[in-house]
Nucleic acid binder design. Structure first.
Length: 319
DNA sequence: TTCCAGGGGTAGA
DNA sequence: TCTACCCATGGA
């Protein structure tokens, strides 16, 4: 990691770089699924940059602009951090850790890429540095976002997370001046747990609100350690059962969370999955969920990713 | 108006 | 384990 600071009045920019794996497709990784455009993330399609507002500690919020640079076979990640005052070494390390985790830069996808090359033309493109589906710096943020994808159209998910972040997140040095470009940070569990009913109701989360409130309360009280799920040395089934114990998390949400935790052996069967598999593999017929899941059985531990890039290839063909 | 979305909880069988 | 019913909200 390297860091350099330039002074611009009170607002400063610190530049951080970090190595990427090979092969690595930065834009394809960030925009690998909808997470890229859920607050506090924004995607700048012109600059091919991920913009994110990040809370580093009490009263300490910064804005990150993340880009890829260098040759395809020797990519680097460049992070511009906009912040007030000095940026401490520990804060720079925290930013780097968050971005590496979001982009899954330390996850070994070699076996998946090898399987893609064997699977045929539909998956060949994924072997060129795709497969690292964007996630959040915390399991809590991913859990809240996942619950907000259930039984709602995508536009509704985006609106819910925008309202939640506006109301309970913290503004950074640029949020006030340009709220279109820079969101607030993602709310902490404590902020959601402590929110009064009226504030939370304003986020219009519907019946999901009590689930998210309860999740935030359990995390804040130390009763539930979501972060531990990321490194737990246990079978996927055990982690899945722990996820299903969270109110608001059912089979679809648990499979989505497992994907975000780096486990791809369960499929998130939702309306998108059913529609896609019905059209592509059942000539428009309506298979049972069990039959529909068999489509990707041969992908083994990579089922989710096998499905995901089949779906994306299908979307490309429709354009 | 009615239906349904990147479903899930609960009760009852 | 399976089914019926209910759950806020908003777009089509």
């Amino acid at each position: 990691m390297t860091a350099r600071q330039d002074g611009h009045g009170d607002l400063r920019t610190t530049k951080i770089t970090s190595a990427a794996p090979t092969p690595f497709d930065f834009a394809g990784t960030v925009y690998s699924h909808g997470w890229a455009v859920l607050d506090p993330n924004r995607w700048d399609d012109n600059r091919l940059a991920l913009i994110r507002t990040e809370r580093l500690g009490p009263g300490r919020v910064v804005h990150l602009t993340v880009r890829g640079s260098g040759r395809a076979d020797r990519q680097r990640i460049r992070i511009d951090v906009a912040h007030d005052g000095e940026m401490r070494a520990e804060e720079r390390r925290a930013v780097r850790r968050s971005i590496r985790r979001m982009l899954r830069l330390d996850e070994d996808l070699g076996p998946f890429h090898a399987q893609c090359r064997q699977a045929g033309a539909r998956w060949e493109a994924a072997s060129h540095g795709l497969g690292r589906l964007l996630r959040s710096p915390s399991v809590f943020e991913d859990a809240v976002k996942t619950i907000c994808t259930t039984n709602v159209q995508w536009g509704g998910t985006k609106a819910m997370l925008r309202r939640l972040t506006q109301r309970l997140g913290e503004s950074g040095p640029l949020s006030g001046a340009d709220p279109v470009a820079f969101s607030n940070s993602f709310p902490t569990p404590a902020a959601i747990a402590a929110a009064d009913g009226r504030t939370l109701a304003g986020a219009r989360l519907g019946y999901r609100a009590p689930y998210i409130r309860e999740l935030a309360e359990r995390v804040t009280a130390g009763e539930l350690d979501l972060e531990e799920l990321l490194t737990r040395d246990a079978s996927t089934d055990e982690v899945r059962r722990a996820l299903l114990d969270i109110k608001g998390v059912g089979p679809y949400a648990a499979a989505t969370m497992l994907m975000l935790l780096g486990r791809y052996d369960h499929l998130a069967v939702d309306s998108v999955y059913r529609t896609f598999v019905s059209r592509r593999y059942f000539e428009g017929g309506q298979p049972s969920d069990r039959e529909a899941e068999q489509v990707y059985a041969e992908w083994g531990r990579w089922k989710y990713l096998g499905y995901w890039f089949d779906l994306w290839q299908g979307l490309d063909e429709e354009v």
